[in-house]
Write a protein that binds this DNA or RNA. Structure first.
Lengths: 341, 341
DNA sequence: AAAACAATCTAAACTTGTTTAGAATTCGTT
DNA sequence: AACGAATTCTAAACAAGTTTAGATTGTTTT
């Protein structure tokens, strides 16, 4: 049988004081409530001796604060998210908060269910989320309006919100610009469809604007829409077909890391040697192993650590300032190009 | 101001019944407690109408169950762990449990602190952990003895425990065997130090035993210990030196994926072309991008999905069987060799 | 010596749900 | 009509903390 946990009352009885007093001292409010130094010491030492640790549920029930922050991402196994998660957690730990990470599996229903559980129940004090949702409708619900939410990676254009994102437009613009400078005139961009996600639409905009800058007309043919549910197969089919068509493409630019790995698989499978064919390969999102993969990858690297840190702090800030509603905070961080050659 | 949450009492008042009744119905115990069908319907429809969702803390406080499982790993950004995490979560979600993922940053103190918070406080109902600890002492504490804990990836040899791990010995043995079959006689193994971790010691054992099988004497020189705190730099220094020494090595075998990427970096940096030099490159742990990296990687792939699923179910099983202590469950899963060529 | 005041502490209320023990009502049976 | 049994429901206790309002005790002031 498990040993009985030490309770506030147990300490109180041992010392012949009230549990009120013990609670106050343990929460560091001894001075504020005028508990004598001597008593405070007694309580603290006895608490240590008895290995007291407060019941988080009782505390959360009474105070309405759990000191838990939720992080909701589409897929925790995606290194983009898992790296952000790591840094969010580190930052929060330093501030006495714990992180609860959940994957939604790109499933809107599951996302909404988790938000209901976490946020509406106040299981967490704040939420950091890379949403899979198409619209802000769900987040506009009465119950969520005043809940501290920080969007990362993607935001919903139809609602006002706090967010921390990379400058997707700028990154994509610069990458396209670089490709053009390297002589590319026929850059095939691969996008996910449906692509209502802000980060992707902005990357496309950056791509198009860079083309325009150099008077290169945008061709519908050069924006390949890949079905989200079937990335691997769809890339394989469409890319194979496109590679045979003329005019020949001189660069392939995938709009996220999933598409990049899917392309690499296809290259591998059909023995496509990008270098020999004179095709540059580029991708938004960097993965450290890109350093060693066979076709050189020119990539846009997002500041994962900074995104994590900023998101964590913004969430804490929102929690603290609950009432003093001083408008929405929008953080847009610069990306950097990694041009391997 | 946030809208007031609907409470059990609110529903009870609306319907002129007791909150006891409402609670019973909402928990699906209406029949068991003999609440009439008609009343049950009324309650459920009113609860839906008022968007009632129970307060998780009040419930957990009373019942002692949080329906939360904790997952503690050294580094969530390591694809090995993040992939397991994904599958654990998926499996648990199907059973009505939520997962709380935390990284310990390979820090024993932080690990112990988190376990205290999560397990001793009963913040979670069960724990799945890839421990960083060196000994089982901490887990032998009175308070933890009866807590449902499932070790993954690594277990502590000095205590009895439930665990789900890959067959590290077998995987390493087979990989070494394969290298020998491919003609290697001088296989340099790179290990992490300090390496008290069960998975690593077993991999070394597999490596040595395979050598023995073919009467290849094990040379201390061929087991390179890399400092955990400084992997990149240490690999660089030691590998550079070793590559110059004779007898020349004909294979490099890294004992985990961190070491593999560190080696790849060094190869890249110094322009070491493994193929040309006639050196095979192998690693325990597979990363999907290994398919495209320049020196072919022969790897041991662990069944991540299976580890996740088994660990989740074992944890749930332990929670359910609390008292019927039917000994410790040990699950060892087979690995597979991925021989790229 | 009584009143005023500060210093130190405590009883009880409160958070929201679950569970126990038992109440009220209806029903069937002799 | 009275009794026991079944059906349906409720009051109160309980989980373990935090917070409010107020009680003691001792000290200073007039």
């Amino acid at each position: 049988m498990a040993i009985k946990k030490t309770l506030l009352e147990d300490i109180a009885k041992e010392l012949n004081v009230s549990k009120t007093l013990v609670s106050m001292v343990i929460n560091g409010k001894g001075d504020a409530y005028g508990i004598s130094k001597k008593t405070q010491e007694k309580v603290l030492s006895k608490a240590g001796e008895m290995e007291y640790t407060p019941n988080v549920f009782a505390r959360a029930l009474r105070t309405g604060k759990s000191h838990l922050i939720g992080l909701l991402v589409a897929d925790i196994s995606n290194p983009f998210y898992s790296n952000i998660a790591k840094h969010v957690e580190k930052e929060l730990a330093a501030k006495g908060y714990n992180l609860m990470i959940c994957s939604t599996d790109e499933n809107v229903e599951r996302e909404e269910k988790l938000i209901s559980l976490f946020a509406e129940q106040h299981m967490i004090d704040g939420l950091i989320i890379a949403t899979t949702n198409t619209s802000g409708e769900f987040f506009n619900k009465e119950r969520l309006r005043n809940f501290p939410i920080v969007f990362i990676d993607r935001y919903l254009p139809d609602i006002e919100s706090n967010y921390v994102v990379a400058n997707n437009y700028q990154g994509s613009y610069e990458l396209t610009d670089l490709l053009i400078h390297k002589g590319c005139k026929n850059i095939l961009a691969l996008n996910i469809t449906p692509s209502h996600i802000s980060s992707l639409t902005e990357r496309i905009k950056g791509y198009k604007d860079a083309l325009t800058k150099y008077d290169i007309p945008f061709k519908e043919d050069n924006l390949m829409e890949i079905s989200f549910n079937n990335i691997q197969k769809d890339v394989r089919e469409k890319l194979l077909k496109r590679l045979k068509q003329s005019p020949k493409i001189d660069a392939i630019y995938t709009l996220n890391n999933h598409l990049a790995t899917a392309c690499l698989h296809v290259f591998n499978e059909i023995g496509f040697d990008a270098k020999k064919e004179g095709v540059l390969f580029a991708s938004f999102d960097d993965i450290n192993l890109f350093d060693f993969v066979k076709p050189n990858v020119i990539s846009v690297s997002q500041p994962l650590e900074q995104i994590g840190i900023e998101a964590a702090n913004l969430a804490l800030q929102l929690i603290d300032s609950k009432n003093s509603d001083s408008g929405f905070k929008k953080v847009v961080l610069p990306t950097s190009i990694i041009s391997r050659n």
